[in-house]
Design a protein around this nucleic acid. Structure first.
Length: 267
DNA sequence: GCGTGATGTTGAA
DNA sequence: TCAACCTCACGCC
């Protein structure tokens, strides 16, 4: 259940494990068998992450993977165990193996189709992309900034946690229309996403609480949320805001749960 | 052991 | 707008 930081982390692990080695590709589950045969035995020569999308190059063909909500990679050194459950795609080399389960997307693309897929993805803070295209969309959009942050054509790799947290950190209401953001607010949020998401890629968890607020929060916090990091509002509906004590709010926005503090992020 | 919900997107209706 | 994807950790019994 990854945001962009996890995908970039997985890309690095796949790169390190399979770099320039011949890979046995199959699909124990069967749904990727025909495509697996086309690349079986080839060398994995490139791994790219763009937002939450992963692209693996085997010569003139790319495997495009999107994990969606349930998708999982198991990446490990050593010999692959007997397959169990639903393994859509399995990669094996002398070094190790990778099992892909439950992805929303696992497809084979030629170079043109891969380029087209990448072109649909907006600038990615983890890649330190130029944010101008995102600003151009935000600046003239009447959609809320809460919705825009989740739109992968605008901000690639941002998910529900980073959305809630970056808005909180900048005291911006998720309901404010994009066109009512100043360039300064947008730039500050973008720079913050670059820092937070890069850090999240290295740590493998999402921490968004500023250092000066940590001691107080650690003393007050009932228990760590299971996503594993320290956050201000994500999944804290009904609890006290760490900074002002007001009740953290929750609402559905585009079929996803949105968290914010009315006092710290006034409309 | 069972039910629920979740860091997300696609494609049909 | 909604079902599908079909995993996994958690709360509750």
């Amino acid at each position: 259940m990854p945001e962009g930081n996890v995908i970039h982390n997985q890309a690095r692990r796949l790169r390190n494990l399979f770099r320039s080695s011949a890979v046995t590709v199959d699909s124990p589950q069967g749904r990727f068998t025909a495509d697996a045969k086309k690349i079986n035995g080839r060398t994995l020569d490139k791994v790219e992450a763009h937002g939450k999308h992963l692209f693996l190059r085997f010569g003139d063909l790319w495997v495009h993977v999107h994990l969606g909500l349930f998708g999982k990679w198991r990446i490990a050194k050593g010999e692959a165990p007997q397959p169990f459950g639903q393994i859509r795609m399995r990669l094996r080399s002398d070094e190790g193996y990778a099992e892909l389960r439950g992805p929303t997307v696992c497809e084979l693309l030629d170079d043109d189709a891969k380029k087209a897929a990448v072109s649909r993805i907006g600038p990615d803070p983890i890649k330190k992309s130029d944010p101008t295209p995102a600003w151009n969309r935000v600046e003239r959009s009447s959609a809320s900034i809460g919705a825009l942050l989740m739109d992968q054509r605008v901000f690639a790799g941002v998910g529900n946690i980073y959305r809630a947290e970056v808005l909180f950190r900048h005291n911006i209401s998720p309901f404010r229309p994009g066109k009512q953001l100043s360039r300064g607010e947008f730039d500050a949020m973008w720079e913050d996403l670059v820092v937070l998401m890069t850090q999240g890629t290295k740590r493998g968890r999402i921490d968004t609480v500023r250092a000066e607020h940590l001691p107080e929060i650690m003393g007050r916090r009932p228990r760590e949320d299971r996503h594993g990091g320290e956050v201000y509002v994500y999944r804290r509906a009904g609890q006290e805001c760490h900074l002002c004590g007001d009740e953290v709010q929750m609402a559905e926005m585009g079929a996803r749960k949105l968290y914010w503090c009315n006092t710290c992020q006034p409309e």
